[in-house]
Amino acid sequence: MNWIAVGLAKDVPPGVVIPSRIEDTEMAIWCTPSGRYHAWSDRCPHRGMRLSHGFVRGETLACIYHGWQYNQTGSCDYIPAHPKLTPPDTICVPTYTCVEEGGVIWVSLNSVDDPLPVLGARVPVRSVPVSLSAKDVAAHFGAAGFTTIAVVSDYDTLLAVQPCTDTMCVLHVLAAPDADRKEVSRWVEDLRTTLEGVPA
């Protein structure tokens, strides 16, 4: 599995952290104030608290439980209970390769150097969860994979599909820049209804 879309940049502005997942890998996706995106394991190594409940402070992500701060490489560089201590390098959060391109946040769990999916001139519209696996969505369109699926419509639509569970995925929808967003949004709702009616 190479690049997977995990969210749209406009939904994760600078200073925000959200939970996300690719199959069984639960992640905290966050954006630094300077606009860099990160995807980390959603677990603070101290006490196992979800980092997606944490807060962005400066260029670090802080855990909500004890305020431990992790720098951009995932290493802990501040423990509030011991302000004078330099934390050992061994305290770090597993990180995944993450980039923002074309308004989409992409993650690669196996850190491959594959080129990013080609989006053309399309722009992101919205993300919708669908009660169907990513594989079944790909099968519905007769597509070989689900990273991106071009779907014929009046809006030059492209779906970037995020696999979540055996019965759930998220569609990140892109469309032609001049497409009416409300119309695309209605098209997406209809698509969701169709897909959720597909026998698994």
Partner: peptide, 22 residues
């Protein structure tokens, strides 16, 4: 907090979590 710690059970063996003096 308690409903968002992973794993839900308390790890008794060292290695899974990192304690400090506090």
């Amino acid at each position: 907090i308690l409903e968002n710690q992973l794993p839900r059970k308390l790890p008794l063996d060292p290695g899974m979590e990192v304690p400090t003096q506090a």
